[in-house]
């Protein structure tokens, strides 16, 4: 299997001397869904933001298809094939649904954009029906779908999502994760940070548990879920999740 994303000993933080990510190493192979779990404050969110170029990196490196992309400016990451969906405020509320897609399509050859937008609408029929509405008027689940569509429009190699289930009702969580499963079957590699361990591990292939800024455990999603020690220590009470 081809290794698409390879993060080696990454150190990152907002302020010098105050690292939040402390030497984390993770990887993702082609067509894999990799889930990153961990307690609050473990640095999950900072880790993928650092990979995406949004948190200053002070050590280690990130390889995409074997090419170093460490600390590439955030706006060039999509051009390298790394798309990121932030947890909140991940759409432009005062642009229409269609404009949200068009704005993200700016890095594609101009002539191909309209057709690519239509492909996205084909994948997300709900959005197609609301293409002329302001994105700010969409429901939480639809916003999340728009954010995913916006990230996919540029044909990324890797899609990274920061807690896509946050703030969604259980019905929408199910829908979003079902969608991510479909997208993976189309061949995309997905890296997912989640609090909702159950839903994420259900679609994930492999998972990492992060603690104190680096990976503490790694394993197939199914075994991780059933490991009593890990469930106890890192995934919270199993009954609660």
């Amino acid at each position: 299997m081809t290794r698409i994303l390879d993060v080696q000993e990454l150190v990152a933080g907002y302020e010098p001397g105050l690292s939040i990510v402390k030497g984390a190493s993770i990887h993702a192979d082609e067509g894999e869904i990799v889930v990153i779990l961990g307690p609050n404050g473990a640095g999950k969110s900072s880790l993928i933001k650092a990979i995406a170029g949004l948190v200053p990196v002070t050590g280690g490196q990130v390889l995409l298809d074997g090419v170093p992309i460490t600390a590439t400016p955030a706006h060039l990451m999509v051009r390298r094939g790394l798309a990121f969906v932030p947890q909140t405020e991940n759409i432009f509320p005062l642009l229409t649904v269609q404009e949200n897609l068009a704005v993200a399509g700016g890095i594609l050859p101009r002539a191909t954009v309209p057709a690519r937008i239509d492909e996205m609408f084909g994948m997300f029929p709900d959005l197609a029906r609301q293409r002329r509405l302001l994105a700010g008027s969409l429901s939480g689940g639809q916003r999340q779908m728009l954010a995913v569509a916006r990230a996919l429009i540029v044909h990324p190699r890797v899609l990274m999502l920061d807690e896509p289930s946050a703030g969604l009702s259980p019905k929408f969580v199910e829908m979003v994760f079902a969608r991510l499963g479909e997208i993976r079957r189309a061949g995309l590699t997905i890296v997912l940070v989640e609090q909702n361990a159950r839903a994420a591990l259900a679609i994930g292939d492999r998972a990492y548990v992060l603690a104190e800024g680096r990976e503490a455990h790694e394993g197939p999603a199914a075994t991780l879920w059933n490991d009593p020690v890990i469930a106890e220590l890192y995934l919270g009470h199993r009954k609660a999740s």
Binding site: A52, L54, P73, A74, H75, L76, M77, V78, R79, F84, P86, E89, N90, I91, F92, P93, L94, L95, E99, A102, V103, A104, G106, I107, R110, R150, V154
Partner: peptide, 24 residues
């Protein structure tokens, strides 16, 4: 225009604008 859309997008959310590849 694409530049006009990007300007509006940037004014709404500069951080997200970078994420979607807009050159600030």
């Amino acid at each position: 225009s694409q530049t006009g859309r990007e300007m509006r997008a940037y004014s709404q959310n500069p951080a997200l604008a970078r994420v979607v590849g807009i050159d600030v």
